[in-house]
């Protein structure tokens, strides 16, 4: 394992206000995640695993504590810096795929590249490479509703990879998939960390899914328990 962690989480807390009640989602979590790791965040519903993932990925903000990703203090970035940072450094895979229904697979994968300086042909080349990597080069011109769930999730992975981010985060990526499609998706995520040098953090409550990872972290009531 490399010496420098890619993700350093220190004393991270997140408290939501729900009516008059303070709900503690994360309570002083500290973890290190190293390059090329494929970490499974596990735990029951409400344990704070998704919250942790969202804060690390820069789509939610912590109440206390620090998160350093590649040495950058994510909390120190303003809204637009954060958007740019996400675009360049983090790939996202969601449980519900979150593809844009009116765009084709190719156009969906191209979206994050529209925010870069790449020209049309460079973008096309990268999109095709990403779709080949997930085995969907022949479905490029299909819209999401013309693809199966497993195929949609693979398109979503291609979209997460297309900007070549160091970090890929996946929130229950197999939650809406059948066993065969789930296995395909998990194999791709595994290959990303093993062969492509990506760091993958995946939230799941399926032990079989977690088994694809290099390490599992268990959360309960906002704290790391194992």
């Amino acid at each position: 394992m490399a010496a420098e962690p890619i993700v350093q989480v220190r004393e991270l807390s997140k408290i939501y206000r729900q009516g008059d009640l303070d709900v503690v989602a994360l309570n002083g979590v500290s973890i290190d995640i190293f390059p090329r790791e494929f970490v499974a965040l596990m735990g029951p519903s409400g344990s704070g695993k998704s919250t942790l993932l969202h804060i690390v990925a820069g789509i939610d903000r912590a109440t206390r504590g620090t998160v350093l990703v590649q040495g950058i203090d994510v909390a120190g970035l303003n809204e637009s810096q954060l958007a740019e940072w996400r675009n360049q450094n983090v790939g996202f895979v969601f449980q519900t795929f979150n593809l844009i229904p009116v765009l084709t697979a190719r156009e969906n994968v191209e979206l994050p590249l529209l925010l870069t300086r790449l020209n049309g042909s460079e973008r096309r080349r990268q999109v095709e490479t990403a779709l080949q990597l997930v085995g969907l080069a022949d479905r490029m011109h299909h819209r999401p509703d013309q693809l199966s769930g497993g195929q949609q999730q693979r398109v979503a992975i291609a979209r997460a990879l297309v900007t070549d981010p160091a970090l890929v985060v996946a929130d229950e990526p197999t939650g809406n998939l059948d066993a065969k499609s789930a296995a395909d998706v998990l194999s791709i995520l595994q290959a990303l960390s093993r062969d492509s040098g990506k760091t993958v953090i995946m939230v799941t409550h399926d032990p079989k899914a977690a088994a694809y990872g290099t390490r599992s972290l268990h959360l309960e009531k906002g704290e790391i328990v194992a």
């Binding site: 809204e79 958007a83 740019e84 996400r86 996202f92 979150n98 994050p112 925010l115």
Partner: peptide, 14 residues
């Protein structure tokens, strides 16, 4: 709404 959220996650500004 979720589509908008997704676009924001991907890096599109407000």
């Amino acid at each position: 709404t979720r589509e908008i959220g997704t676009l924001r996650v991907l890096g599109f500004s407000r």
